[in-house]
Amino acid sequence: MLPVLSIGPLTLPVPGLLVIAGVALGTWLAEKWAPRVGLPAKWVSDVLFYSLLAGVVGARLFMVLRTPAAFAAAPLSIFSLNPALLDPLGGVLTAVAIAVWLAARRGVSWLRLADAAVPFLAVMQITWALRVAANGEMFGLPTRLPWGVNLWGAVRHPTQLYWAVGAVALLAWVHAQLNRAAARTTPPPAGWLFWPFVALSAAWFVFVAGFRGDSPVSPGGWRLDQVSGLVVLMGAAVAWRRLQEPAKQDDLTASSAP
């Protein structure tokens, strides 16, 4: 756990730095690998930039809409730099909406753009896992395993590190898939990278969540983080499976590069 890093008189918030590093590295990697998905590097980089910007603005607007009384009492807070005043779901919805709109404007399938965004998502997954580790969140159940970590009064499963290790392995898998795609003569169908990536990420999250000591639990004893991961996994798996059908293999026109 390392929420802040003190360098002389400077105190730097480690979780925030990790997110910024993830955005920078993820955007760079997505731009570098975009040609392997059949999209122009500069365009992918621009779409990511504008979507992220819109995501931040959308996250604040959703927060204002959700809690209007608080902002009516302190209107200047709308411009506050506090990340805690951002609504994560609102931010993601806005960023995705803007990305889909930009793709449609250029005549690119949103799934093809999603394939190009996978390196960005894979890097963000790693930095997010490290971010929760720095905050001491998503801590594990007590364990006697030799790699247990002492946190919050007990030796616990290092669930954040389990998550991070899986996310690193997924990034390596993404790299291998993109190398294979670059060697192919015909482009794979749109979503060929995105759906398996989402399915594998969700499956790993479901696995790791089983060791968490802070899961929200439903009355029936189901861990809600596992259940939500399972829903995402099943949705992505269905989409992934549909890509295997012969008709989809030939359907390259709608998803071809501009």
Partner: peptide, 11 residues
């Protein structure tokens, strides 16, 4: 860290 915005305190 801070400063916290007043709206955050109210929320």
């Amino acid at each position: 860290g801070g400063p916290m915005a007043e709206a955050l305190l109210r929320v």
